[in-house]
């Protein structure tokens, strides 16, 4: 087997909290992404998605820290690299598409400067060539009138435009891995569809692998080669898209999918959790999902389930996985 682009193994990330035990945002997280593969990572907010993205980039916001496990990029253990080596990877070999780009772009720099800076400081490209390549990239992300937009400032852009600028920034150095973190969540539904379509096409064109983070499981159905479900900082289920949607096995996955179901009985069974249950925090011992699980049994509350491969390429973290109905 070839080395994967990204291999996360047994990753723990902790945020120390004052006078209490540290908050464990990620726990024993394993995830690998192959060349040009698109992996969807789905979970509700607070489940650790952004923390994973930042841990992969080796930029967990302090005082948070990676307390265990490793992140390897193209076979290189990132914890062994120094800050300068990491910097040359970030934005160049692995890059991020962020949400709310209008607040993340520098308000004082033009679109052209912000995209150009990435190219300039990673490749040394400058002058006329720099400008041409940036404009080329603006065309590629379908920004109308790129010559004019080159000199626009972030506050002059619509949300969709800003999102495209951020995509241009992420892709201009032809990265091997793009991490898209909730990138379309702030956009109108129609704009969202366009941007997603574009993102997928760009990933193909630039032959880049992608970790596609979202809260919306529906999006992954069109978008991803594999789907991973995260809850309470742990992977609950991971499978190829076809297997996952044909045969979701984790109760949480089924809960997420049931929200889309037209069968009212099915819906009410899986969604019967009340407000209180939906608010419940992941359990510290036993199965983290136990407080919200409709299938919970005594065993679940005391014994932490392992991620098991129940069929080829289909891993589930549950003592009592959902059986395929005949």
């Amino acid at each position: 087997m070839t080395t994967p682009v990204l291999a996360v193994e047994g990753l723990d990330v902790e945020f120390p909290s004052y006078g209490e035990a540290p908050v464990r945002a990620l726990h024993g997280l394993d995830l690998s992404i192959g060349e040009q593969e698109i992996v969807g990572l789905v979970g509700e907010s607070g489940s650790g998605k952004t923390t994973l993205a930042r841990a992969i980039m080796q930029l967990v916001p302090p005082p948070g820290r990676i307390s265990q496990g490793s992140v390897s990029f193209e076979g290189r253990d990132l914890s062994k690299l120094d800050e300068e080596q990491l910097r040359t990877l970030r934005g160049r070999a692995m890059s991020m598409v962020i949400a709310n780009p209008r607040s993340e772009l520098n308000p004082l720099l033009t679109v052209g400067q912000q995209i150009g800076n990435i190219l300039k400081y990673h490749t040394g490209c400058k002058g006329r060539e720099l400008r041409e390549r940036v404009i080329e990239m603006l065309k590629e992300v379908r920004i109308p009138d790129p010559e004019r937009r080159y000199d626009a400032f972030p506050h002059e852009l619509s949300g969709g435009m800003a999102q495209r600028v951020v995509m241009a920034i992420a892709l201009i150095c032809n990265p091997r891995l793009v991490i898209s973190d909730d990138a379309t969540s702030g956009l109108d539904v129609t704009v969202q569809a366009q941007v997603l379509e574009l993102l997928k096409r760009l990933a193909e064109r630039h032959r880049t692998a992608m970790l596609f983070i979202t809260r919306d499981i529906g999006i992954t159905a069109h978008f991803c080669d594999r789907v991973a479900i995260i809850y309470g900082g742990e992977i609950m289920e991971i499978a190829t898209r076809a297997r996952f949607f044909a045969n979701p096995m984790h109760p949480y996955s089924v809960l997420l999918l049931a929200a889309f179901s037209h069968n009212p009985k099915l819906r009410s069974y899986w969604l019967k959790e009340g407000e209180a249950a939906a608010e419940a925090r992941p359990a510290e011992t036993g199965c983290p999902f136990a407080p919200r699980c409709v299938r919970v049994r005594e065993h679940c509350r005391s014994v932490h389930p392992e991620l098991r491969e129940l069929e080829a390429g289909h891993h589930v973290r549950c003592h009592f996985p959902v059986e395929r109905r005949a």
């Binding site: 930029l59 916001p61 910097r87 990877l89 160049r92 890059s95 709310n100 607040s103």
Partner: peptide
């Protein structure tokens, strides 16, 4: 936010501080 983003993009520390 914009400084953290610049850092995520791998801009040199010097440039991030200057911005």
């Amino acid at each position: 936010d914009f400084s953290r983003y610049a850092e995520l993009c791998g801009l040199p520390r010097k440039v991030v501080v200057a911005q």
